[in-house]
Each structure stands twice: as structure tokens, then as C-alpha cells.
Design a protein around this nucleic acid. Structure first.
Lengths: 207, 207
DNA sequence: GTCTATACCTAGATAGAC
DNA sequence: GTCTATCTAGGTATAGAC
């Protein structure tokens, strides 16, 4: 009996866990949290339902991990764009566009992260990540006020409005069929309107 | 055997049904959809769990009715304000303020209507009512554009942003304890910032 | 029409063989 | 470590007495 697991063992264990998270993410993106039962997820990952509990203490823990991973990627992307080059106003516009475009490219996952009914553990994570989105936007809004590009305002409120607006605008297209947005509008037109609205919302003068 | 129920019988039956809906609404506002089991709701209404099925064919049907009643009241109030006196810009401001104030006055219910995890039947109703809110705001935004008070824009997008923004701004205060908003801010200050943001969002020139 | 009691189902979690 | 089989809890819905 070895006192500790061999590196190969650890690696295989870790690989299984990673595959489990990855496949669970796909299942959630496809059928939503409610339908993503332990059995369905385990089947998708090619292991037995019981084996899930070798990697996570509960379904809620797995769900929370799935959410954190996926949402974390979006926060990282948004963070990079909002801290990139350009004026605060330009960065806000690009941040909205990148965020929305990514959501439209992976609608199922975006809907799961933004709006889909979920168990309390996931709901708590969602609130936390919405706070992070808000904090990122709020920072840039305040930067814009400091440099005189944006009028005086409550950065937190504006940031909340931006994240809420993105979510609301996207949810309908997200919920709809597969093709383009609800009506005949193209994705690019939708994004253009969305960024224009966001800049108005922050009080940036029209282009 | 009577061929039809007497008026008194009908009235008592209707009264029980109404009480059931009313108490179910309270339960949902207090503990959320997930915890509002048939048993809990029936207990609150003072009837047995099985008797619920004399009034509604399923739990989902009862939940949908609860949602429709409550959300319908909010739509009616918003509709009245948005079609009331004043310029389109003034009406948008008042609409936001009334909507938000009512939500803050009945936080539990507002959270249930706007954001709380819910079964699919309720989720569908929620989407439908969000569309109605949007349609109301969109109409006034277009009116504002027609009268030259608001710049050219996609009314639907702006309306979606307004409803999303309200929801996002309110959810945090709604989720929190009971007192005032998250930080030391008073309700009135929050409402003032919210309406200011909404008017910027629609492109109304600053006061 | 309402109650009590219960059937039944779903889904999370566990036990023990391999 | 993973599987199969099973246990259990919670909750919807139904049956039959009153």
C-alpha cells in the first residue's frame, strides 16, 4: 500500500474530474440546470451516477463549480477588454460588444449563466458574479467621470443597469430558436444598437 | 339534486379559490417558488393539500395563476402611469419611479416576479410579462422620438434595457435584509439615481 | 367539497461487489 | 475508483370516507 497516490493516479483522477465538469457544462448549456440530473451528467461523462460522488460531495457542489468555471472565463475576458487600450468610453463600448457577442455565440451557456432557473447554490454564485461584472463596469464609469468624458452619476447604478440591460436584451434572442435574433435583425445590428444604448446610458455624448 | 349549483355555493367555492391564490401569493413572496410546496400553500390557506386539486388541476396551474395575478397588477399600474399626463420623457421617469417604489415596498413578491428561480410554467409567464413591460416602455420611447424629445434609437432595445436595468438595480436591495438598500443609501436617493440613469439611457437631455 | 391517508414518482445519495 | 443496485426523502397527485 502506497502512502500517497502516484503521479499517474492523480493525473487520471484529475482528468476524470475535469471531464466531468466539462461535460456537465455542456449538459447544462443544452438542457438547463433543472434537467441536468446527476444521472444525465454522469452518462454524458461516461461514468456511473454513483461515481460522481467520488469527485464532488453533492450535486450542488458540482453545479457551483460548473458555474464558477464558465462565469469566471467571462469575467476574465471582460476584465481584459475593460482594462485594455482606449478611452473609458471606448472600452465600455467594446466591453458590451464582446460580452454580448460571446453570449450570442454560446446561447445555451449564456442563458444558463444569466437567467435560467437554478438551484439556490447556483443562484448565489450568480449574484456574486453579477457583482463582479458590475464592479468592472463601475470602475470604468468612474474613470470616465474622472477624465470628464462622462457626466456625474452613480457608477454602481449605471453599471448595474448595463449588466441588466445586456441580460434583458439578450435573453429573448437567447431563448428563441437557433437562427438569428428574434426578428429579421442581424447580430451586428443588434450589437450596434446595444452598444449605442449603453453609451447613452452612461451619458457619453452621441458619436 | 339541483341541476346547477346555488349562487351561495358558487360564491363560497369562489371565495376559497380566491383565498388560496391570495395565500399562495404570500407564501411565494416569503419563501420563494421552490419552497412553496402544495402542502405549505394549503396549510397557509387553511385547507388540506388534497383540496387544492378541487380548484386547480396541478401545482403548475396554481403557480401560473399566482404569477399572472401579481404581475398583471404591476402591468396595469405601469400602463396607467405611462399613458397618463405629461411629456413622454416625464412619463418614463414616473413609470420607472413607480415601478421601482412598488417593488421596494413588497420586496419578496417583486423578487419572485422578477428574478427568483421558478418552475418552467412560471418562467414562461415571466417572459410574457417582461415582453409586456417592454412593449409599454417601447411605445412611450417611440412617442418621444416622434415628438423630437428623444434621439433616434431602437425603442425595443431601449425598453428592454430599462426593464433589465430596473431588475438588476433592484435585485440586490431586494435580496438583502429588510431595512434600506444595501449600503446607507435611502430609498429616495436610489430612486432618483435610477430615474436619472433611465432618462440618460433613453437619450433625454439632462435636466 | 373537504378531509385523511396513501400511492407513486423523481432524483439525490449510499453500500458493497469487483 | 468505478460499477450496480438500492435506499431514502420530498413532493405531487389520487382514492375513498365523511
Amino acid at each position: 500500500m502506497a502512502y500517497r497516490k502516484t503521479p499517474a493516479e492523480l493525473q487520471r483522477l484529475e482528468a476524470t474530474r475535469e471531464r466531468l465538469v466539462a461535460r456537465a457544462t455542456e449538459v447544462v448549456a443544452e438542457v438547463g440546470w433543472a434537467q441536468a440530473s446527476v444521472t444525465a451528467v454522469a452518462d454524458s461523462a461516461g461514468i456511473a451516477a454513483g461515481s460522481v460522488y467520488q469527485h464532488f460531495p453533492s450535486k450542488a457542489a458540482l453545479a457551483a463549480e460548473v458555474f464558477r468555471r464558465a462565469a469566471g472565463r467571462e469575467v476574465a475576458v471582460l476584465d481584459e477588454v475593460l482594462h485594455g487600450p482606449g478611452t473609458p468610453v471606448e472600452r465600455i463600448g467594446r466591453g458590451i460588444e464582446v460580452f454580448a457577442r460571446r453570449a450570442l455565440e454560446n446561447r445555451g451557456l449564456a442563458y444558463a449563466l444569466l437567467a435560467a432557473p437554478a438551484e439556490p447554490a447556483v443562484g448565489a454564485e450568480r449574484l456574486e458574479f453579477r457583482r463582479r461584472y458590475r464592479a468592472l463596469f463601475a470602475e470604468v464609469v468612474r474613470e470616465g467621470m474622472a477624465t470628464g468624458l462622462l457626466p456625474d452619476q452613480d457608477g454602481e447604478i449605471t453599471a448595474a443597469a448595463l449588466t441588466g440591460a445586456i441580460g434583458e436584451v439578450l435573453v429573448d434572442p437567447l431563448g428563441g430558436p437557433g437562427a438569428d435574433t428574434a426578428d429579421g435583425r442581424t447580430t451586428d445590428e443588434l450589437l450596434a444598437e446595444l452598444t449605442a444604448m449603453a453609451l447613452r446610458c452612461a451619458g457619453a455624448p452621441p458619436a
